[in-house]
Amino acid sequence: MIYGDCEIKSFEVGKGQWHARIQRVDQRPVVIDGMSFPTLDIGFAWSDPDAAIADARRLIDRFPQRFATIVPSAEALS
């Protein structure tokens, strides 16, 4: 599913243990404390894929500066 500037995919690790993977749609890395990640796997195991995706959406909403595409203003380019 596409959510904002991110693609979220759920995947199962073990029977009934669902996680989510977040990747930016533009394929740029997510930068956290100066470290870049091409994808982020959300480590909490949920009992169904929809719950894993909902958790990933909450994470994106909580830290929008990490997941948003930042477009420099015209002034910054001058």
Results as ranks from 00 to 15, higher is better:
P72N: 14
M35K: 09
V71C: 07
D50F: 13
D26H: 13
F44H: 10
E7G: 05
E7M: 10
I8A: 01
D5I: 05
G16P: 05
E75C: 05
M35P: 00
L40Q: 03
H19L: 06
H19Y: 02
L77D: 04
V31I: 15
G4F: 00
I42G: 10
I2S: 12
I8R: 04
I32T: 05
P38C: 01
A74M: 12
S36Y: 09
P72G: 07
E75L: 12
R24D: 06
D5W: 02
D50R: 10
D50W: 13
V71Q: 08
A51G: 14
C6P: 09
P49A: 12
G14E: 07
W18I: 05
V25M: 02
E7C: 12
V13Y: 12
T39D: 15
G16S: 08
F67V: 03
S73H: 13
P38K: 07
P64W: 05
K9F: 02
I2G: 11
E7S: 10
E12G: 04
A56E: 02
D5L: 05
S78M: 14
D26G: 09
T39Y: 14
V13A: 15
I22W: 00
D55W: 00
S73P: 01
A76K: 12
I2H: 09
D61L: 08
A56M: 03
V25A: 10
R58F: 00
E75W: 14
P72H: 10
Q65F: 13
G16Y: 03
S47V: 14
P38F: 04
W18H: 02
Q17R: 15
D33P: 06
D26V: 15
A54I: 08
R28H: 09
V13E: 15
V71Y: 11
G14Y: 09
I60Y: 00
G34Y: 15
E75S: 11
A20P: 03
I22R: 03
D41H: 04
F44T: 13
K9Y: 02
I8M: 06
P49S: 09
R57V: 07
E12L: 11
D41V: 10
Q65E: 09
G43K: 13
Q65V: 10
G14K: 09
A20W: 00
Y3E: 05
A76F: 12
Q65H: 07
M1H: 06
A56L: 04
F44S: 09
D61I: 07
R66E: 04
G34H: 14
R21D: 01
M35S: 07
D55A: 10
A74L: 14
Q27P: 08
E7Q: 15
W18E: 00
K15A: 10
M1P: 03
V30S: 03
A52M: 06
F44A: 09
R66I: 05
F63A: 12
H19W: 01
G4R: 05
F67G: 01
V13C: 15
A52G: 08
D50E: 11
F11N: 13
R62W: 00
V13K: 14
F67L: 05
I42V: 15
Q23T: 13
M1Y: 03
A68D: 15
A45G: 04
I8K: 00
D5G: 03
